[in-house]
């Protein structure tokens, strides 16, 4: 477990562990403050004939809530994560196969979607799936006074006017996916994107450090 301290733009302390499950091809756990997600990836594996795509791999994302069965909200988040993964993965290299990503919520204390994205990226990297770039998820909340809070807790999310989550790619720091809720101006949106891009640098540096630590024994 590695922990990265927080500084501006403020993210809560985050940590991760790779290769912690024995059965899946790749696995990771990602912790942002009190929010914690466990991710497992399988692939390239056999695919059902009905879901087979002849020129690329089928990406499947399953989100398991802490309690109960997945509902519409989980489905919406699954779609966000799936589309981000599809954009990052080089799925053309494994036609007629499937990549399955299972995300288990361990604890939700705000910024859950960004934690899903970060855990997913770590798990995909651990599984050795071919990727064109990495991605990081950053959540921004705009509170009643118009202040922007990055990586908000559940309480901060509840008191916010608007909530936005962006997936940022590692090569050009562009927005790969965005999911927004509430009302905000165009100016605020652009400000949030700029802040997220800045915050993503920290996450990408953290990715690099933790992967380096993982391979330190085989160097």
């Amino acid at each position: 477990m590695e922990v990265c301290g927080s500084s501006s733009p403020t993210l809560r302390e985050f940590g991760c562990e790779q290769n912690l499950l024995s059965r899946p091809d790749g696995s990771s756990s990602f912790i942002q403050g009190d929010t914690s997600v466990l991710a497992a990836v399988y692939g390239p594996a056999e695919v059902k004939v009905s879901k087979e795509i002849y020129d690329r791999a089928t990406m499947e994302v399953v989100i398991q809530p802490k309690v109960g069965v997945p509902s519409v909200r989980e489905r919406a988040r699954e779609q966000c994560v799936r589309e981000t993964c599809e954009a990052a993965l080089l799925s053309k290299l494994h036609p007629r196969s499937s990549f399955t990503l299972v995300l288990q919520v361990v604890h939700d204390d705000g910024s859950l979607l960004s934690c899903f994205l970060n855990a997913a990226c770590m798990a995909l990297m651990d599984g050795g799936l071919p990727m064109g770039c990495l991605f990081a998820g950053v959540t921004c909340a705009i509170n009643g006074e118009g202040q922007i809070i990055t990586d908000p807790t559940a309480v901060q999310e509840k008191g916010s006017r608007a909530l936005m989550t962006f997936a940022i790619d590692s090569t050009e720091r562009r927005v790969m996916m965005s999911s927004t809720k509430g009302s905000f101006t165009v100016h605020e949106l652009q400000k949030c994107i700029a802040i997220s891009q800045k915050a993503s640098e920290k996450i990408f540096q953290f990715y690099r450090d933790s992967v380096r630590r993982r391979y330190s024994k085989t160097l």
């Binding site: 290769n19 790749g26 390239p44 990297m125 050795g128 799936l129 990727m131 391979y215 085989t218 160097l219």
Partner: peptide, 21 residues
Amino acid sequence: KSGVLRHKPPNLYWIDSQQRR
């Protein structure tokens, strides 16, 4: 892929990664 860049003379390069699949 994530991993260590390896080299074999004269000009062969590859990434050495720890994968399972």
